[in-house]
Write a protein that binds this DNA or RNA. Structure first.
Lengths: 169, 169
DNA sequence: TTGGAATGTCAACAAGACTGACTTATTTTC
DNA sequence: GAAAATAAGTCAGTCTTGTTGACATTCCAA
């Protein structure tokens, strides 16, 4: 398995993009690109002494207003205790509102306040700006390929969450 | 800026892939894909009570054997205190060797021991396996686009580091 | 109606990032 | 040759964000 060279040599030219060297390149590309991807919002968050966890919570509450804590946990892939700390500060700071569920009083439904929407927008704008520049430089065909590979890279349950969010809008 | 819809409507069909909605999708794709990307090595590392930081160090020492601590710091983008903690355990555990530089005796040159190479290989294999599956599913054109977008997303200095590593092999 | 499952909260801890201050050895510069 | 700069390492302390464990509340089904 460790030798893609042998494999592609035996299978022909068409599979050259599956060599270990090509894969290693992709791995490094993911590593460096993800750093760029988070850099701009991170700068904004630092000034407010928030972290990436706050950004993620704001992002997904914005996308699915009224979502429950449990729902959010599944998407974010952290423990409820971990999410709770973040959520508590966001609620204290008046960015997020938590309402007890009407049908099921155990549930808390989460929504952004106006201030929360404003910050989410600000973070989103910063991140999208870089994304837009990258997309524009790369062109539509590259972007299509980009999304195809990313989707194929996800765990099954995360792909389902991704598709549900994408198609639910 | 917050309204890509307006922009693309005024510029025409060709820029539909630059709408805020498309960009938001890309952002979520990056988030979910990165989780998948790190999941397999993370499982291996956990058993050894190592973390992602150890993986990154092993990866780049493997790619650039004999690299100096300063070099590694620049690539990893962390402080020396942070790297040092990781490096110390890797050296103590006999996975990495540190040799005093010949021309400049202040420098320490880092290399993997046989055990280090073995673990790096194991982690790499796990990560490449997922990458290979994703690449195969997506096909060569998609992979080309994937790399193009990722490269465009990096900070300038990271892109230079990426290209140097890529072309230096 | 009672016991189990689900939802969410609080407390304590660990990894891994950070800053700041400092030492040591070596090299470069004036 | 002395002073400044560089490379590496260390100690101490903080912050974010992940983890477990224990616990309260609420719902539902036997």
């Amino acid at each position: 398995m460790a030798d893609g060279q042998t494999q592609s040599a035996s299978t022909g030219q068409a599979l050259l993009y599956l060599t270990d060297e090509q894969l290693r390149q992709g791995i490094e590309a993911m590593f460096f690109a993800y750093r760029g991807f988070t850099a701009d919002p991170d700068r904004i968050l630092e000034e407010l002494s928030y972290g990436r966890a706050h950004h993620r919570a704001l992002h997904f509450i914005h996308c699915a207003p009224g979502t429950t804590v449990n729902n959010l946990l599944a998407i974010l892939g952290v423990t409820k205790q971990s999410l709770n700390r973040v959520l508590r500060t966001l609620i204290e700071d008046g960015l997020v509102e938590s309402h007890i569920g009407r049908s099921d009083k155990r549930e808390r439904h989460l929504t952004l306040t106006e201030a929360g929407k404003a910050l989410e927008q600000q973070l989103s704008d910063a991140q999208r700006l870089r994304m837009r520049d990258a997309y524009r430089k790369a062109g539509p065909e590259a972007v299509a390929g980009f999304k195809t590979v990313l989707e194929a890279m996800m765990d099954d349950d995360m792909r389902q969450a991704y598709i549900a969010l994408r198609d639910g809008r």
